[in-house]
Nucleic acid binder design. Structure first.
Lengths: 170, 170
DNA sequence: TCCAATTGATTGAGTGTTCAACGATGACTC
DNA sequence: GAGTCATCGTTGAACACTCAATCAATTGGA
């Protein structure tokens, strides 16, 4: 296409710091949960979503949206959670394609155990190191990134629908 | 231990946004590289590090540090890269335990192909959506997170060395 | 000098993720 | 109603990562 807009030295520096800080942050977050509660962060998220839902029950599809997970990932994950006895599955009467995921008492106990340590870790590693001002800044920065990424998804849809139009992203 | 310092509503909101924005960002970054250049971001990082090094050659150990990767991960990755013909391995004469990773011409061509699209993606999804001011803010925020995380690692070391001292992190 | 501890790097098992394909049901249209 | 298309959810294969164990080479002391 056109000329590549390479990163300036300054941008390079910020980029590498961003990649490192966030990457390491996730790695350690994962490690903390795995070590202390024997579950990946994805599972934690699923259990939390279920625990906050009515009757501790959700449609797989809604659960995927809530957890911002792909259907496939959720399916695999819930299979594991079921094997662990933390979740059970139940068919949906009104739509026979659908199914419900239901949090068991054991599952509820599991997040109940996991939450304090996890929240404390998050506080120590994120909120304790940022000022109030930085919290606002971070929120806005994440908002901007989020908009762009989600906008992409929409564009992709549009393009799928009205394929043939070769409009530029920029 | 002591009382749990749960997150306030505001903190919850920022936390979820942070998790979502950065998580999705990584997912899409990965997807872009996989789709356009058929490699995960980890491999990209390795190839870049090698391409910037003297003689396109690095000790595995140094490469791992440079890429902020575990030894194990790097070992697996380089094995794959070798199978793809992008890297070769070579023994180290001065320390017979060690080995060198060397970028091949094919490997150099591979990043050369991958880089423009990847950089453009990063620009569009990060730098284009942030103001100069936000860039500064992001750098400082990442710096703070980084310090905390890396501080942990040091603490862990200290504790390992002088185990028996049960001092609190907070 | 010799033994113990450390370091460089690899390996295999286990786990979670993606992608594409699939079966089954539902919705919509002619 | 019959055919088409979209949606719900699952599955299996391929792949990358982690963790713990391993091996070989090196370093450091007694």
């Amino acid at each position: 296409m056109t000329e590549v807009r390479w990163l300036s030295d300054r941008e390079q520096a910020v980029w590498r710091r961003f990649i490192y800080a966030t990457g390491k942050f996730y790695e350690e977050l994962e490690r903390q949960l795995q070590r202390d509660s024997n579950m990946p962060h994805t599972y934690y998220t699923i259990l939390v979503a279920l625990s906050e839902s009515d009757n501790r029950t959700m449609r797989m599809s809604d659960l995927a949206d809530e957890c911002r997970s792909s259907r496939s990932r959720l399916s695999h994950a819930v299979a594991k959670l079921e094997a662990a006895g933390w979740v059970t599955r139940r068919g949906c009467p009104s739509d026979k394609r659908g199914s419900y995921a239901v949090l068991t008492d054991a599952g509820f106990a599991a997040i109940d155990d996991a939450a304090p340590g996890h929240v404390e870790w998050v506080r120590q590693h994120l909120f304790d190191v940022l000022t109030e001002e930085q919290l606002d800044q971070l929120e806005r920065i994440c908002g901007a990134i989020e908009n762009r990424i989600d906008g992409d998804a929409d564009n992709r849809m549009e393009r799928q629908l009205a394929s043939g139009a070769d409009r530029q992203v920029s």
